[in-house]
Write a protein that binds this DNA or RNA. Structure first.
Lengths: 167, 167, 167, 167
DNA sequence: TTTT
DNA sequence: TTTT
């Protein structure tokens, strides 16, 4: 269809560490579980309410997949831009299921770490568009040895994210 | 969570007329099925490819629901802004299902008709935000006339869902 | 700054034909003037009000520049996505001026024609991201013919700016 | 114009404390200076490059103005959503000037603090749309006494923002 | 200068 | 089920 737009913009926190799948082609595909939430005061009861929504993000964009793998961890706050895609699959009983995901296709989408201060001043923002754009040095000088990403500090917030993840 | 954003922006075409459900409160909730699609030339085969994605949009915003009911029809091109929401339900066999929708909550979201020329110069854009903003005259002088689209099946929401497809 | 986003999304109409500048490199840079407008009913007076905003868009993305040149004309409705950029310049009196533009950098941004029906079924949507994505056939089989829009003033950029208005 | 969209999305840091102007009506209008920046490696020289863009944000939305006043300070990272507006003015010599701003109109726009952890677990996100939505408790229990917002810690980053602000 |  |  000439003239369509399919765009999702999320700012939220990872409910768990990124899941990395290595493809036969050598490329990686990274899955993120991202929580967004809203809070408000109920007009009737006066109570504070909060509702968390969980989003499944799939990163095929190679540069962004690398960055996700290297810099994101449970609890990280990120800006993500991708497109909606619903795919059909069958569970073990053969029942038809649908899953809607936010997909960052090859060369497309955006991913920006919003709390990058932790971890030593490294940046990790990257725009999906161009091959000559975005941060290159993190890719050239990746996480290196064992001093790397600490195993997902069980900070209070990250802990909150632990339950109720539907996927 | 302090600091989260959950936003979907679509430009696409309605696959069928809006579905309007009248609530007991007197308010209407409108469902839209919107198609977005992408086309590209396959690098291997050189063939033209196209992929269409279908989106289920649910409008709780009263002003936008009115506009959708009055001005949108099968084939209309619209700009829609809402938020992602996944809800769990059970099909007739008791199997658990998830459906992800783009929701325009009360006072929130945006809806703009992009091919309003047809139909006699009527405008129908409206921003969800403010009570003193947006087009009011279409609401004051609705489509009227007998030629109009019939005022929407009062099917229950549950009834709409009792088949094995997501929408 | 790790973690920043600078994004503009416009849906509006071209106030005049695209302006194309041919660079020494052989690439083209295209400028668009896009109008967006809002209408509302004034609460005090009850009068209908309308306000139009004009936006200057600059397309460095080569693929999108080609599409703009070939398919857009005065009155076209487009979806544009780019980033804000303010540049300083001096008018003929030496006075300092600032102009803010929506810029589609190389490999970045999006441009989609929203009223492509006119012109014979040609599509012209294109996503800025990938080199293997988007419409290729319009590029392979461009508008041709002598009836075409003239290939754009080769005025220098400075020349365009030497009056006292921002664009 | 039926069918137009004028939207800006920024994630960036405040270059200085919010500027609050009290109107005769008793309402406040808040101005923010927000920096976004990009970094990349230059293909020719191999050098790291960085470019910062400054944005002037004007908040007429009362709820968001309150939140900006209470919770934002120099260096704060925010998500802002508003619309582009260019206004003409005259400098002291009578010369005509144009300034483009990101405006959050009454009942419109969004503002979300992205580094709210500092300051005692207070949230400050708020969606501009609805009167019954968004966080209310920060408004009911504002900054309170002297323990309040520390005077814009001259952290290294904030310090970097100090120079080169064009407005 | 567009569009409705 | 739309649109090109």
């Amino acid at each position: 269809m000439a003239g369509s737009v399919n765009k999702v913009i999320l700012v939220g926190n990872l409910g768990r560490d990124p899941e990395v799948r290595r493809m036969n082609s050598g490329e990686s595909v990274v899955n993120l579980n991202i929580a967004t939430s809203e809070s408000w005061r109920d007009k009737q009861s006066g109570e504070r309410k909060e509702k968390t929504e969980w989003h499944r993000v799939v990163i095929f964009n190679e540069n962004l997949a690398k960055i996700a793998e290297q810099y994101l961890k449970k609890g990280s706050k990120v800006y993500v831009e991708g497109q909606l895609q619903t795919r059909k699959w069958q569970d073990q009983t053969g029942a038809e299921k649908f899953t809607t995901e936010i997909v960052l296709q090859r060369f497309r989408g955006e991913l920006t770490l919003l709390d990058g201060r932790a971890g030593g001043g490294e940046q990790s923002e990257y725009q999906g568009g161009g091959s000559d754009f975005g941060r290159s040095s993190p890719l050239e000088a990746p996480r290196g040895g064992g001093q790397a990403r600490q195993p997902a500090a069980t900070s209070s917030y990250a802990a909150d994210l632990d339950d109720d993840i539907p996927f």
